[in-house]
Design a protein around this nucleic acid. Structure first.
Lengths: 351, 351
DNA sequence: TTGAAAGCGCTAACAT
DNA sequence: ATGTTAGCGCTTTCAA
C-alpha cells in the first residue's frame, strides 16, 4: 500500500522475484503448459506481490489472436438489439473473450466501424442491423476474420448470416389476424434496405393474399424501425379521418408495434384488440408488459447467438471461413392479448 | 479480388511497395508527423493496394496507450444503463477510441471484470452500478489507469464518481407528492448496497418528515432495481388486502416505478394518478410513453458523461489521477401524468 | 525530412 | 521441465 510502482510489473519482474526465467512466468499463466507445480505456485505468489497482470496486448502480438470479438450495432433504439448485445456479452465473457462494441447510425454503413475494429485484430465481427459493403467482407475474410450478420443477410455475399424465419413469421401473424376475423390490414415497415423488414412484410402479404385478401386492403406505413417512427406514421396516416383504420396492424418489430399501439390509444382512443388488433415481431421484454401484452413472433435469441458463435468458430482459428452461409432458425408465435385468441386459449406461457 | 493474401500486410510490405522506409509508413499514418506530402500520398496509395490496416495492438505495445476504454455494466436490465452505455459509445467513438464492454451480475462485484480489462491495458475504466473493492481501485491507479464510478460513489474511496443529486431528487418527488395532497407513502428501493438508492430514499424520507409525515406513514419495499422485482414487491405487499395502498409510491428508479404502476393496474385495477400517484427517477425513454407518462427526476446523462470523461482525461495520460473526486450534477423534475400537477400546469416539455 | 535500430511485453520454437 | 532466443508490428529516439 505504501509504494506506488508507477509502472506495471512485467513478466521479467515476476521472474526475477520468483527466481525463475521469464518464460516460466509465461507458462505459469498459460493453462496446460508444462511447469512444476511448486514453481507455478511460487510464480503466482510473486505475481500477486507485484500486482502483475499479464499483458494481453503483447500476447496478442505474438499469438495473432486478440480474444476480442467486435459487435457492431446498427439500431440501438430497438431494445431487441440491446438484448442481443447482452446475450453476446454473456456468452463471450464466459468463454474468456472480450467484446469491443460499436454503434453505427440506424441501418447505416458499417464500413468505417469495420476498418476500426480491424486495427485491433479482432478474432471475429458480429453485425446487427447494419449495412455492409462486400468489399469490407472480403477485407475481413482475407485476413482470416470471420464476419457474421445477425438478423440479416446479403444475398450473394460472402458474409454468413443468422436470422429468424422472417417470412414464415410474417405468415404466422397474418394467420392469427385472419383467424381473429380481420379483413383490412396495415403493416408498419422498418428499414427499407434491410432484408429483415422486407421478408416479414412479404410473408405477411403473401399469406393474406392466399386467403383472398386484396392488395388494396393492405396498406403500408414506414416506421423506420423505431418507436417514434411508428407512432408518428400512425398518427399521420389516420389523423385526417379520411383513411379508415384497419382491423389489424402488423408492426414489423415489437418496438414499432408498441409505438403504433400507443398512438392508436392516445390519439384515437382506440382499444386493442377490440377496435384494432396488433401483431409484432421479436418478443422483447417491454412488449410483454401489462400495457402491451403483444401477440408476437419470438426470435430465439439464445439459439441465434449459438449459431452465430458456431459460424465464428473462435476456437479453431485455422479452420477456413465458410463463405456465405445463411442460417435460419424458426420463430414461435406467442399469443398474448393484442390479437383475440381464436378459441379462447388466451395467454400462452411466456407472457 | 483474385489473390487472397491469407496474411495481413504490414508496414514493411507497404514500405517496400512504396519504395520508402518502414518508419515513413508509420509516419504516414500518424497525424502531425513530418513527412513530405508527395511521399505520404504514395504510401497511402500503396497501403490501399495492399489492404493495409495499421495494427493498433502493436502500436499500443510501444505507445503504452491502447485507446480502449472499458465500460463495466452492473445492471443491464435497467434501460437507463443501456442508455448510458450508448452515450459513452457515441462520445468515445467520436474521439476515435474503442469501447470494451463488460457486464457483471446486477450490483455484483466487478473485481474480476477489472482484472480482465486490465490485461488489455485499457486507458480508463467506467463503472456503472457495480461494486468495486478498494484494492482494485489502487490496482488501477497504480498503473495509471483512472477509474470512475458512474451514478455511484464509495465514500472514502480513491475512485472518483459522477452522480446525480440523488437526495435532492428524492426530495423533489416528495415535494411533488405533498403538493398533490398525498399523506401516506411507499417507496420501492433498489440495490441496498448502492448509495444511489439509499440517497434517493433518504432525501425522500427527510422531506416528508419535514412536512410532518410520520415515519410509519412511509413503507419500504425492495424492488432490486428491476421491473419484475418492483412488480412482485407491490403484488406481495398488497395482495392480502390488509395493507392499505398508500396515496403515493416512489420508485427509486423509473423501471421500478413502471413495474409498480403495471402491478397496481393489472392486479388491483387501480388508476394512476387517481387512486395512487407514482414518481420515478432517471427519465428513461420507456417511462415517457403513453401508458406510463411518469413524473420523474431526469438525470442529465449527457452532462454526466461529459464529467466522467473529463475526470478520465484521456487526452493527457500523464496528468496524475485525481483521487476520490465526487462530482454531483443536479437532476430536474419532469412533470407528466403520474402525479397530479399542482396548478394544472400538466405536462412539461419533454413528455 | 528521412532511415536505421532499439525496444514495447509477450509466446513459441528450440535446445538442454 | 526449464531456459535461451528470435520474433510479433509498430513507435520513437537518434543520426544523417
Amino acid at each position: 500500500m505504501n509504494i506506488r510502482p508507477r509502472t506495471r510489473a512485467t513478466s521479467f519482474d515476476v521472474a526475477a522475484l520468483a527466481g525463475v526465467s521469464q518464460s516460466a512466468v509465461s507458462r505459469a499463466f498459460t493453462p496446460g503448459s508444462s511447469l512444476a507445480e511448486e514453481k507455478r505456485l511460487r510464480i503466482i505468489e510473486a505475481a500477486r506481490k507485484l500486482n502483475y497482470v499479464p499483458n494481453s496486448i503483447a500476447r496478442s502480438l505474438t499469438t495473432q489472436r486478440s480474444n476480442i470479438v467486435a459487435v457492431i450495432l446498427g439500431n440501438t433504439a430497438n431494445p431487441f438489439y440491446l438484448q442481443v448485445l447482452e446475450a453476446f456479452m454473456h456468452r463471450l465473457q464466459a468463454e474468456g473473450r472480450q467484446v469491443l462494441t460499436f454503434t453505427v447510425e440506424n441501418g447505416g454503413e458499417s464500413d468505417e466501424a469495420i476498418l476500426r475494429v480491424l486495427r485491433y485484430q479482432v478474432d471475429g465481427v458480429i453485425l446487427t442491423s447494419a449495412q455492409l459493403s462486400t468489399r469490407m467482407v472480403s477485407l475481413c475474410h482475407d485476413r482470416g476474420i470471420p464476419v457474421v450478420l445477425f438478423n440479416r443477410y446479403i444475398p450473394g455475399s460472402d458474409a454468413s448470416g443468422v436470422r429468424c424465419a422472417n417470412a414464415e413469421g410474417g405468415r404466422q401473424i397474418a394467420t392469427a389476424f385472419l383467424a381473429a376475423g380481420a379483413r383490412s390490414f396495415a403493416m408498419i415497415k422498418g428499414d427499407p434496405k434491410g432484408t429483415t423488414s422486407q421478408d416479414r412484410a412479404r410473408g405477411f402479404v403473401d399469406r393474406l393474399m392466399e386467403a383472398g385478401i386484396g392488395r388494396d386492403a393492405i396498406s403500408e406505413l414506414e416506421g423506420h424501425s423505431v418507436y417514434d417512427g411508428a407512432h408518428e406514421a400512425v398518427v399521420r396516416e389516420f389523423r385526417d379521418g379520411r383513411t379508415k383504420i384497419p382491423d389489424a396492424i402488423f408492426g414489423i418489430n415489437d418496438i414499432m408495434a408498441m409505438g403504433a399501439m400507443d398512438a392508436l390509444r392516445q390519439r384515437f382512443s382506440l382499444k386493442v384488440p377490440d377496435d384494432v388488433m396488433i401483431g409484432g415481431f421479436d418478443d422483447i421484454a417491454e412488449a410483454r408488459r401489462f400495457p402491451y401484452r403483444l401477440t408476437t413472433v419470438r426470435q430465439p435469441i439464445g439459439q441465434m447467438v449459438d449459431e452465430t458463435l458456431a459460424i465464428l468458430h473462435l476456437d479453431e482459428p485455422h479452420r477456413p471461413i465458410e463463405p456465405g452461409r445463411d442460417v435460419v432458425v424458426p420463430g414461435r408465435l406467442i399469443w398474448r392479448r393484442s390479437i383475440p385468441a381464436p378459441r379462447g386459449d388466451g395467454e400462452t406461457k411466456g407472457a
